[in-house]
Simulated scan of single mutants.
Amino acid sequence: MAERERLVHIVDDVPELEGTSTLTMVLALDGFLDAGNAAERAVQHLVDMSEGPVVATFDVDQLHDYRARRPPMSFVRDHYEAYDAPRLVVRLLRDAGGTPYLLLHGPEPDNRWEAFCRAVREVVERLGVTRVVGIGSVPMAVPHTRPIALTPHANDPSLLTAESPWRGELRIPSSVQALLEIRLGEWGHAAMGFVAHVPHYLAQLDYPLASAALLEQVEIAGRLTIDLSGLHAEAADKEAEIAAYLEANQEVAEVVAALERQYDAFERAEESGTSLLAADQPLPTGEEIGAQFEQFLAGLDGPDGLEGRDGPDDADDAAGQERD
Score class of each variant (00 low, 15 high):
Met1Gln: 14
Met1Tyr: 11
Met1Asn: 12
Glu3Lys: 12
Arg4Ser: 08
Leu7Val: 14
His9Val: 02
Asp12Asn: 09
Val14Glu: 06
Val14Thr: 11
Val14Asn: 04
Glu16Lys: 00
Glu18Leu: 01
Gly19Met: 12
Leu23His: 05
Thr24Leu: 10
Met25Gln: 03
Val26Leu: 14
Leu27Ala: 07
Asn37Gly: 15
Ala39Lys: 00
Leu46Glu: 03
Glu51Gln: 14
Val54Cys: 08
Phe58Pro: 01
Asp59Asn: 15
Asp61Glu: 14
Arg69Leu: 13
Met73Lys: 04
Met73Ala: 13
Phe75Leu: 14
His79Gln: 12
His79Asp: 04
Tyr80Pro: 06
Tyr80Lys: 09
Pro86Leu: 09
Arg91Ser: 10
Arg94Trp: 08
Pro100Ile: 03
Gly106Tyr: 11
Asn111Gly: 09
Trp113His: 05
Ala119Thr: 02
Val120Lys: 02
Val123Gly: 09
Val124Trp: 04
Glu125Gly: 05
Arg126Tyr: 07
Leu127Phe: 00
Gly128Asp: 06
Arg131Thr: 04
Val132Gln: 04
Ser137Cys: 06
Ser137Asp: 05
Val138Leu: 15
Pro139Ala: 00
Ala149Asp: 15
Leu150Met: 15
Asp156Glu: 15
Trp166Arg: 08
Arg171Ala: 09
Pro173Gln: 07
Ser175Asn: 07
Gln177Val: 14
Glu181Phe: 08
Leu184Ala: 02
Leu184Tyr: 00
Gly185Trp: 07
Gly185Ile: 00
Glu186Asp: 14
Trp187Asn: 08
Ala190Phe: 10
Ala191Glu: 06
Pro199Asp: 09
Leu202Lys: 10
Leu205Thr: 09
Ala210Asn: 10
Leu214Gly: 11
Leu215Ile: 04
Ile220Tyr: 07
Ala221Pro: 02
Thr225Phe: 02
Asp227Cys: 02
Asp227Leu: 05
Leu231His: 06
His232Gln: 15
Leu246Trp: 08
Leu259Ala: 11
Leu259Ser: 09
Arg261Phe: 01
Arg261Met: 07
Phe266Met: 11
Leu276Cys: 06
Ala279Phe: 11
Asp280Trp: 10
Gln281Asp: 03
Ile289Arg: 01
Ala291Leu: 10
Gly302Met: 03
Leu306Ile: 15
Glu307Gly: 15
Pro312Val: 15
Asp317Trp: 00
